[in-house]
Amino acid sequence: MIALLPFSLCLVAFNCFALAKFNHFKDVFNKRPTQQQRLVLLSVAWISILLSLLLCINELQGYGGLQFCGYMTLSALIVMTFYSFLVRLTKLFNLLILVILAMSTLFFGLNGL
């Protein structure tokens, strides 16, 4: 369960990278993103992915680095699948990953601290 946090951070990161693009933002929110919104999304994405990398390496050093690459691959695949094939479910998808992130942060907080 603790492993879920780095993975969900990766998922959120790629989702934000996708949302920062005009067409994908439109699919979810039905309007074009402003420059500021794009900036916020990109910053959240970068912070999220770097945090994920940090957590992985902190946990298991070299092996953690490998795991991080694996998480990136899987997250990219999931985000790619939703935005290319399951466009109608993207809103639900966004909601889902926020919930997963919240839950995994909770687990991490309860177990890690």
Partner: peptide, 10 residues
């Protein structure tokens, strides 16, 4: 197991 599946996916 998890990482092995990810390798397989790759």
């Amino acid at each position: 197991p998890l990482l092995r599946v990810l390798y397989f996916l790759g």
